[in-house]
Lab assay of single mutants.
Amino acid sequence: LKLEELTVSELRQQLRLRGLPVSGTKSMLLERMRG
């Protein structure tokens, strides 16, 4: 599964599971997911 294919709400869910901030735009969330 490519990160880009996730919805913003799915990205936020994944970030929350990792204890990361869930604020910002989709591109910011993607950068955060990539670490």
Rank of each mutant, 00 (worst) to 15 (best):
T25H: 08
R18Q: 14
R12A: 06
P21N: 08
R18V: 11
E4M: 05
L17P: 00
V8N: 06
V22I: 09
R32I: 04
G24N: 02
G24P: 01
P21S: 11
P21Q: 07
L29Y: 04
T7P: 09
L6S: 08
R34F: 04
T7L: 01
V22E: 14
Q14F: 06
E4N: 13
G19Q: 05
M33W: 03
L20C: 11
K26D: 04
Q14W: 11
K2L: 05
E31C: 01
Q13G: 09
L3S: 10
P21K: 04
Q14V: 10
L6F: 12
Q13E: 12
Q14A: 15
P21M: 02
L15D: 02
E5W: 01
L11P: 02
K26W: 06
E5P: 07
M33G: 07
L11M: 07
L30C: 10
L11H: 01
V8E: 14
R12F: 02
E31S: 08
E10I: 01
S23D: 15
L30Y: 00
R12V: 08
L30S: 02
L17W: 08
Q13F: 12
T7W: 04
M28Y: 04
M28T: 13
K2A: 13
R32K: 03
G35N: 11
L29E: 10
S27Y: 01
S23I: 10
M33C: 09
L11D: 01
L1K: 13
K26C: 01
R12L: 04
R34Y: 07
R18Y: 09
L30V: 12
L20W: 02
V22D: 13
R32A: 04
R12W: 09
R32L: 04
Q13W: 08
R16Q: 10
V8R: 07
G19W: 00
Q14P: 00
M28L: 12
L30K: 09
K2V: 14
M28I: 14
S27H: 09
S27C: 05
S23R: 06
L30D: 06
G35D: 15
S27R: 11
R18M: 15
L1G: 06
G35W: 05
E10S: 05
K26R: 14
L11G: 02
L30F: 05
S23M: 10
L15K: 06
P21H: 01
L17E: 12
R34D: 06
L3E: 09
E5A: 10
L11Y: 04
K2P: 03
E5G: 06
Q14L: 07
R32E: 10
R16D: 07
R12P: 02
S27M: 02
L3K: 14
E31W: 01
L6R: 04
S27P: 10
L15H: 15
Q14T: 05
L11S: 03
R18A: 14
L15S: 10
Q14N: 05
E5T: 08
S23A: 12
T7K: 10
E5C: 11
G19A: 01
T7H: 04
K26V: 14
T7Q: 07
T25L: 03
G19P: 03
E31G: 08
G24R: 00
L17T: 13
G24L: 00
L1S: 12
E4C: 04
Q13A: 08
Q13L: 11
E10R: 03
V8K: 13
L30G: 04
S9N: 15
S9Q: 15
R18G: 03
E5Y: 05
R18K: 12
G35S: 09
L29W: 03
M33Q: 14
L17D: 14
G35L: 13
L20T: 00
M33I: 12
L6G: 03
V8I: 03
L11E: 00
S9C: 07
L1N: 15
M28A: 14
T25M: 04
R32W: 03
T25V: 05
V8Y: 03
G24A: 01
P21R: 06
T7A: 04
L30R: 08
V22A: 14
T7R: 03
M28W: 01
G35A: 12
T25K: 10
L17K: 13
S9R: 12
E4F: 02
E5L: 03
E31P: 00
P21I: 01
L30A: 06
K2S: 10
M28N: 06
Q13N: 11
E4Y: 01
M33N: 02
